[in-house]
Design a binder for these strands. Sequence first.
DNA 1: GTTCATATACCCTGTTCAGGGTATTTGAGC
DNA 2: GCTCAAATACCCTGAACAGGGTATATGAAC
Lengths: 219, 219
Amino acid sequence: MSIRIAIVEDGHQIRKNLITRFSFFDDIEVVFDAPNGIECLESLKHIRKEELPDILLMDIEMPGLNGIETTAKVKKDYPGIDIMMQTVFEDRDNLFRSIQAGASGYLLKDDPIEKYVDALRDMKDGGAPVSPAMAQKLLDHMRHQAGEHKSGEEDFDLTSRELDILQCVVDDLTEAQIADQLYISPHTVRTHIKNVYKKLHVHSRASVVRVALTKGLIS
Amino acid sequence: MSIRIAIVEDGHQIRKNLITRFSFFDDIEVVFDAPNGIECLESLKHIRKEELPDILLMDIEMPGLNGIETTAKVKKDYPGIDIMMQTVFEDRDNLFRSIQAGASGYLLKDDPIEKYVDALRDMKDGGAPVSPAMAQKLLDHMRHQAGEHKSGEEDFDLTSRELDILQCVVDDLTEAQIADQLYISPHTVRTHIKNVYKKLHVHSRASVVRVALTKGLIS
DNA sequence: GTTCATATACCCTGTTCAGGGTATTTGAGC
DNA sequence: GCTCAAATACCCTGAACAGGGTATATGAAC
């Protein structure tokens, strides 16, 4: 069963080139092509359901509705259609925005047509083909995030009661409310809070909340 | 210039097979092979610096020191060596642990040798070749994270001045300190803070900090 | 040229907090 | 039975905050 794709790309010549080059592959069928997001959405609207493409090959840089906005709209109305982004620039921000919008593949425009075809086949099989250059950025980003979490994993050695108090402080309860909730005297709450302050090296509720959240001390 | 690799893989037959199959590619040179992480580290230690491999092709599942632990150790002592993980299972956890340990490529063992070679070449060029199936998991994970952030992306419509104030409050400055820092009267600070409270629907500094951090209003 | 949002400034009042103490009870570990 | 950490409880004081006002200057929008 062949792979039905549509090409969304503002460069007229590039579009024609892609169509021509895809024509040499029996399992790739170009259902339609569009010069921008608006026309793409129009084409999708006026096509019969069983004729819908499997994959949109989407340019990021387009006048009017750009590739990311178009991706978001398409994914909303046609969640079954996969989006393969293509771009000339290895732009970090666009990469993340595309992923968030729902794209699942990422190619560079100077990739050879065989890479395109391989990627389309992989995508049809449920994979998410990402060009190595883009994957590099993805991994960097994830390593960074993982690192942040890990670096913040200091041990402040709070007792379980102090963690109760901490949670209440983050929930913005007054000392009296905390006392009610934990069935202890407000004086005791005061004492616990003071001890928490000492252990976290802070001097205010605002700082407690910040430390608790950024260091992951509470859920 | 050829790509110097080492194969770390506990299956003796698989190792020999890989070596044989790589031998048909002129630009791939297998520097050494090891059946586990320990021996891999030993080989690296006793090799001359200029003979070090560019890339380690690392199995995840190995007795003793597994691929992830080995990756972490190798990356620590030889940050210049890239790690290409290979696994039979598309395991989410292992994928993330590998990334964190410093691996930059991810192949499935049933990928054809040409994919291996392509991936090695991509990696040598600075890319991070990730098999589409693994990339799928990566993207899902990132979308999930992005989604979490996004779900909290309500628009509180703070003015830029109010954002200044917000930042100061999160930084735990008193009203007087904020006034000093922004060159305005403490009374004005008070007014801004009150307006921020109204817009964020909170009644205390602790809540401001929590909302600002959890809703991503500040860096 | 009036309207509207924003930023600015000030007043008053009552509440809450932060930091400095001290002291008792309780349960686990030695 | 002693010790020690943890949890509990209380006192005092001054500083900071929250919420309720009002008011003016400014620049953009209509």
